[in-house]
Nucleic acid binder design. Structure first.
Lengths: 96, 96
DNA sequence: ATAAACATATCGGGCGCCCAATATAATCAT
DNA sequence: ATGATTATATTGGGCGCCCGATATGTTTAT
């Protein structure tokens, strides 16, 4: 989509940031929430590389807690999400 | 995005179908409308292959009128768009 | 301790998005 | 008719999305 100027180019990344902004989650939890919305749960090969890219871009951070890793937005992630939301709403005006 | 079940897998295709559902347009007109919304006008190498794929999928049809081609939805295109809109709204609930 | 279950992670391959560059076709201005 | 303009179209290359397959690490059950 080219959602934003900064390191968040696709709709999956956008959706992940948006969901994490509502509630910090671990990977499986995130995958299930995306699955509920889209109708099909993304595979591990989809979700983990996306999380890795967002982490390397400095938009999310993680905390290990036993066998899971809880992800949440960084400050840059919050700023990036706000910008991306503005563009998203402008792009899809009237679709709803 | 995997927008839908049928031949319309990405956000660009979704946006094109949505815009054509509001008003039949030719390629350049469509590119400019997308540009207004996204902030950057897609290049010919983006827009024309997308239109070709949608035509070959039977979702849009075209009418030449001098140097331009006017695109509009087929019946399948209308049905596909409605289904894709439902999924889109479900996926991005609360973003707005 | 061993197995089962769960979560995270990587890899190869297919496909869509996107652009720059290039080409073709139709129209318009002179 | 010649050139400029506008619209359509294709190609090559980069990158993101997506899955199936496979691997690794952690916890839980037995």
């Amino acid at each position: 989509m080219g959602t934003c100027c900064c390191d968040m180019r696709g709709m999956l990344s956008f959706l992940i940031l948006f969901l994490l902004s509502k509630k910090p989650m671990h990977g499986q939890e995130l995958a299930e929430e995306i699955g509920k919305r889209k109708g099909e749960k993304p595979s591990p090969g989809t979700i983990y590389p996306a999380l890795k890219a967002l982490r390397e871009a400095g938009l999310i951070k993680e905390k290990r807690s036993g066998k899971i890793k809880i992800y949440e937005l960084t400050k840059d992630g919050k700023l990036g999400l706000e910008e991306a939301k503005r563009q998203f709403c402008r792009t899809f005006t009237d679709v709803f």
